[in-house]
Design a protein around this nucleic acid. Structure first.
Lengths: 340, 340
DNA sequence: TAAATCATCCAAAACGTTTTGGAAAACGGA
DNA sequence: TCCGTTTTCCAAAACGTTTTGGATGATTTA
């Protein structure tokens, strides 16, 4: 059915060895021959059988990403952009992108990773939504499986990563808020075992301290990165006696939930209370009011991750094993009037 | 390195044939033997090498989906849910999910499909964002590649599909609006060669006609399914002499753009003008005001698509080759006060 | 008792590549 | 002319499965 290397060889009266080597650019084949091989291969529409090549070369030329789906029906604008970045760069590097999904931290997740690792399903892994101690890091490095992560963990393993400097980002934001006179600043975060929580919360704590502002435990709430979580957390904050004047949120979805809560309580966000997020998702541009946020180049980050992973797989030495990206503070109306 | 079938066979003093057949559930192996095989295979952590199996069986046990990325940095809440549905059901059916991305309709898209088809990269394809005449339908059916599509095209090819009845959905919505007394109802759609445009626009036209309302060309605007497109289209509509009292949008993102435009022009959506969307994305629940929309079960649709595709690949006869899903009208404040 | 059937097992081929370890021919230097 | 190089090619092995077509005994049937 499909045209194989054998067909090409037969047509040219050559051995399959020569055809293979001609196409792979080996030096021990005459230029004239190589020319002919390449041409007829193209003419005949020859495409190497992936499975055969994989079997022989013992590599799959595929990279894997397992979606951390917290709910069966899950939807997060971050991921469509992230995946399209992974896919695009994978194509550039000659890899396919294999995708599965599993609830993070569960046995199901373990199962998927194990199956892929033992079945030698992919050459390398892209990880994100890291937990502070992440079994995936331990497991993959133990199994000698190449991987790269967005965000860093505390695991005593040296692995290549891209990290967004959430701490610095939040500090920028806090400086701005404090500069505007805010003193009671609340923080809505997520579970303390998530890497981004450790990172961003640290920024919050540090800025409060540097500014000599009193830390109050009740101004810090743990949510779950969703709109609904943000909404509920804001409910608590905005029903206090002594209202916070600003709410810093760990991500945009949380902030958008908070925005809605404030609105329903009759508070004017940007005037009565300032609210800010983190991520720079598109929805944040169009919320009411538009959301102040720290934006990160998700698409480019995804591509960078694949670039690094590809280098790791091929044993190419890396210029830098840890790339740090500074998020950019985008001021919008949710933290006070702006001329945008 | 990895444990192969040979290792298992050696351990048990059996041939690899028997091990293979025991694991595959053939009848010609003694129950006692099968038991032992299964147990030691599990103990040794044996996972069949995918490439070898693929090569031998001439199938990849993988299904493919190519993201229609209209922009390099593209983000659409629809797709994260869609992909997670595809991935979950693929896992259930024993398939992997391979993903790539390409701008729809371009040569790049053609290239990706061709490479996958010729390289026998996947066993079947999931298509969406169909155009009215879609070359992919022609191409894949010509190549005898199994595929399944969300939405139908006009191509004279019989293929299995899931379709959301946009026409009926829009009619429901229109009935509601007309019942509330709206007469000047505008429609913001997209390029007429998209299947969903044909479908949903038809619903609009038909309802207008059935209600005896005059059709006005200037009340129909072509946008591009994005927030920005919706915003710009609404600008045109809301700067007319004789304002429309309602705007029906082809999807939620468009409607959210329109919402914002109305807000900026000082119009109270839900009072001065009614605006509605289509899709039921999460953002629509939290917009200001919350958006009336037609919701479709994206996750379930994705799973259904994979189920059907799996049946097609395996030659299992299908109960129904075309599944129709009725979207559900969700009334929210953007079309007038509601007790929600 | 011989023949036929049945229950288990297995050797070998095949899938389509890449890679190893030469072989043959052409060439160059003495 | 002969021998060592160089250039160009190739046969065969290997990757890890599944499948084909028996083989071997044991059991039943005639």
């Amino acid at each position: 059915m499909a045209v194989t290397i054998k067909d090409v060889a037969r047509r040219l009266n050559l051995s399959i060895t020569t055809v293979s080597r001609a196409l792979d650019g080996y030096e021990d084949v005459a230029e004239e021959t190589r020319r002919k091989v390449i041409q007829t291969a193209r003419e005949m529409g020859y495409v190497p059988n992936r499975a055969a090549r994989q079997l022989r070369k013992q590599r799959t030329e595929t990279i894997g990403y397992i979606l951390p789906t917290s709910a069966p029906r899950f939807s997060d604008p971050f991921f469509s952009e992230f995946i399209s970045g992974l896919g695009d760069e994978a194509a550039v590097q000659g890899y396919d992108l294999l995708i599965s999904s599993a609830p993070p931290g569960e046995d199901a997740e373990r199962l998927v990773y194990k199956r892929w690792v033992h079945g030698r399903r992919v050459d390398g892994y892209v990880l994100n939504r890291m937990r502070l101690r992440d079994w995936r890091v331990q497991f993959l490095s133990q199994m000698n499986a190449p991987f790269v992560a967005l965000e860093r963990t505390l695991d005593p393993v040296d692995y290549p990563s891209v990290e967004v400097d959430g701490q610095a980002g939040i500090r920028d934001l806090m400086d701005f808020l404090i500069g505007k006179g805010h003193q009671r600043i609340a923080y809505i975060g997520t579970s303390p075992d998530m890497a981004i929580q450790a990172d961003r919360y640290a920024g919050y704590r540090q800025s409060m301290q540097d500014a000599g502002l009193a830390f109050e435990q009740e101004l810090v709430i743990e949510a779950d990165l969703t709109r609904r979580g943000g909404y509920r957390a804001a409910q608590k904050l905005l029903s206090m006696q002594d209202l916070p004047t600003a709410i810093v949120c760990i991500n945009d979805l949380t902030a958008i939930g908070a925005l809605q809560c404030a609105h329903e309580l009759g508070l004017k966000t940007g005037k009565d209370v300032a609210i800010a997020g983190f991520d720079g998702i598109e929805e944040a541009e169009n919320s009411l009011p538009p959301l102040t946020t720290l934006t990160q180049p998700v698409y480019e980050i995804a591509r960078e991750l694949v670039k690094i992973l590809s280098a790791v797989i091929n044993g190419t030495p890396l210029a830098r094993r840890r790339i740090q990206i500074q998020p950019e503070l985008i001021l919008r109306a949710s933290t006070g009037a702006v001329v945008s």
